[in-house]
Amino acid sequence: MALLEIRGVSKTFRTLKALDGVDIDVQAGTFHGLIGPNGSGKSTLLKAIAGAHFADTGTVVFDGHDITRATPYERARAGLSLKFQITAVLPELSVYDNVLLAMQSTESLPRLLLSLSRRALDADVSSLLERFRLIDRADDLAGELSHGQQQWLEIAMALALRPKLLLLDEPTGGMSPEERRVTGELLEPIKAHCALIIVEHDLHFIRDICDRLTVLDQGKVLDQGDVEAIQRSPKVQQVFTTRV
């Protein structure tokens, strides 16, 4: 059984049919890319998975649980983590505290009040910051980081929740080519314990790190399959040469 099963998901905004009967399976431990022209419904689909809004019809089943109408809190607890398109680090807290905040989210309220896990989580927070090349900025405010570093911090925070599935909405937006390359390197090791859904405009980046691709066009699945198959797909080539 797939980790995430999306069946017949539709979403309409007033008269605009943003999603129209979308079916997607995401297997555990795979990196799954969502591509398509602007307005094809990529972000809408990602938000329906994350719970930022609900699908009008269809079901989203995650790890055996129907989460179609679950709250963001319930989804997070089930093991779903989201990195926002617009960076949403907490700018007035230190880099360290941003990660700690994400990492301690499974603790109960009394344990948080007594700060029982502050010491125990220190090593995990530090090693995550180390991995994302942020350890030297640990005491700086998150709002003082460069844009690319804020994106990395976001990914680190999303991973700190130890998710089974991570949703990344344009992780390399606004990054330099060098930062994009590093981002790919940073993501590679997580495959062992976490599946990934990425929405991204940079097709080179997608091609380099994803195993499978789903191409959306006008709210419908145009084609899906492994990266090589999609690259050869005539349907996809037509859409991307005429409208991108």
């Binding site: 994350a50 963001p72 949403a88 007035e92």
Partner: peptide, 17 residues
């Protein structure tokens, strides 16, 4: 720390769980 995060971005904290 949770309260400090909530004051800055309540919705974000809900996505943390």
């Amino acid at each position: 720390l949770v309260l400090a995060g909530m004051r800055q971005n309540e919705e974000r904290l809900a996505f943390f769980g």
